[in-house]
């Protein structure tokens, strides 16, 4: 890592944007749990780090006017995971967050950082995709929002423009109260990247219920298995096996150190079936 690296920690978003426009080779810094190792191994070499953690606006979790929940970009994952409103309304997000690294790491890592890193295995992204979260972004050209479904463009790539930063991630009110599980296979039980991650969720108290199936580490980006969701919505849990087939068709895994493409694809099927079965078990008194 270069020793002449410049580090700035502005206290407003405007200042952060201005600093970045002066130094196009720079990088925004949140928890740094992905960025710093990438710098150490030479994968990234920013000329300046613009730390966003001192910007008060980015450090909040707050309810939006329409009953959604906005999670500021600089909120550590540990705070997301333990926040009462997250736990009450978006429990599956808390479950996904709790699988990222270890507790000390989650004191630094952030939700925004996790999705900006755009790993195909991003555990938090499956919940954000499932909940139709909306990413708030700002650049010198102004503020805009991006739906999660269009946020990822490839491994390590997002729809953010150069110099644009994420301000928050908003969970809509319509996604409150999904029950379900995030099922995950990894090489060891704790602190490991997912070999396969499958979220299966179902809205509580609606007839007919809405289903959500989102997958990690089985495609170039985290994805939703929409056809599988629609099948379950149409035919209910008895169609689990066919939904699992549709989810397997939706994924496009690669073979890497953690598992082969074949194994991953098959495991998507296994975990979708299990996830649906667990919904039934949870639903029973």
């Amino acid at each position: 890592m270069p020793s002449d690296l410049d580090y700035r920690s502005p206290s407003t978003v405007d200042h952060a944007l201005a600093l970045m426009s002066e130094a196009p080779g720079g990088a925004f810094l949140l928890g740094g749990t992905d960025l710093l190792p990438q710098m150490r191994t030479g994968r990234r070499a920013p000329s300046v780090l613009v730390d966003l953690k001192r910007i008060a606006e980015l450090r909040e979790i707050r309810e939006t006017a329409d009953g959604g929940l906005s999670i500021g970009a600089a909120v550590p994952l540990a705070d997301v995971e333990t926040h009462p409103l997250v736990r009450a309304r978006y429990a599956l997000l808390a479950e996904c967050v709790s699988t990222v690294g270890a507790w000390p790491l989650r004191q630094r890592a952030t939700l925004a950082g996790n999705i900006c890193n755009a790993s195909p295995a991003a555990d938090t992204a499956v919940a954000l995709l499932a909940f139709d979260a909306v990413v708030g972004a700002v650049s010198s050209e102004g503020r805009r929002t991006l739906p999660m479904s269009r946020f990822f463009t490839g491994p390590g790539r997002t729809a953010l423009r150069p110099g644009e930063l994420v301000t928050d991630v908003v969970l809509p009110a319509t996604s409150r109260g999904f029950a379900g599980s995030y099922l995950r296979l990894s090489r060891r039980k704790g602190m490991d990247l997912a070999t396969v991650g499958v979220l299966v969720g179902r809205s509580d108290g609606e007839l007919p219920p809405r289903y959500r199936i989102a997958l990690a580490a089985v495609a170039p980006t985290p994805i939703r298995a929409v056809a599988a969701e629609e099948l379950l919505e149409a035919r209910g849990p008895k169609a689990a096996a066919e939904a699992a087939e549709l989810a397997m068709d939706a994924c496009a895994p690669i073979t890497d150190l953690r598992g082969s493409a074949e194994y991953r694809r098959e495991m998507v099927g296994v975990l979708v079936r299990r996830g649906v079965a667990m919904l039934e078990r949870k639903a029973r008194p």
């Binding site: 190792p37 090489r187 060891r188 039980k189 704790g190 602190m191 490991d192 990247l193 150190l257």
Partner: peptide, 28 residues
């Protein structure tokens, strides 16, 4: 879980990091 994997075209150890080479954690 453990195996140091060497790429037999380049001779490089491809999992030479704690991210890619796992040893047991307490949960294991």
């Amino acid at each position: 879980m453990e195996e140091l994997i060497v790429d037999t075209t380049t001779g490089r150890a491809v999992n030479a990091s704690l991210m890619d080479y796992k040893i047991p954690s307490f949960e294991d």
